[in-house]
Amino acid sequence: MKKDQSSIDRELRELSPFLHDLRSKEDGFHLPENYFDGLEEQVFQQIDALGARRKPVRTTTARTGFWNSLAWLWQPRVAIAFSILLVAAFAVWWMWQPKPSVIETNIPLASQIELTPEELEAYVMENVNDFEPEQLALLAIAEDENSEPPKTPAPKTNTSTRNEKSGPDDLSPEELELLLDDLTDEEIEQML
């Protein structure tokens, strides 16, 4: 501040000689020794308490900047976030892997097993309750087709009816279904 001593002196002398004289005397105000030495830190403590402190920006060279950026990666929060990201990426990759529709095992498929007609019949007889009537009927048809046809066909009798021993070749699928509807499980079992 530019002091205006001569001006104030002149002004006071004209305005109030008493105040002019008083001004030149010791005013009695003092302050603790080295008071200003601790002032800066006290001010910064207050600034910190208010959370108003500015973070000093450090100028870095390209080289130190590179290492500083690597050091930044070692912060715990960055490492945790990076680990979570890795696990998530692996999970997504694993989910999107193409999977076989049937689980491959050493157990052969039923279609791959060659069974003799006798083995097949024995299995069916043992587990007859597990089959639907339609399945049993189809099985019977298949057996008939596999069996050797007679050299000379048996003469047809007039008394024979379609319900009795007429061949399945003679029946349409609708007729066969009607026929099976009329039969009980026991009758089908006997037929077999």
């Binding site: 105000f29 302050l31 603790p32 008071y35 002032l39 001010v43 600034i47 208010l50 108003a52």
Partner: peptide, 26 residues
Amino acid sequence: WHIRRLVLVHEDADDVLQNTFVKIYR
């Protein structure tokens, strides 16, 4: 000294001066 002559007491002047510098900083 400007503050001290307004509030007179050193303790008060110290408080006001610190508040003043905090305001200046911000």
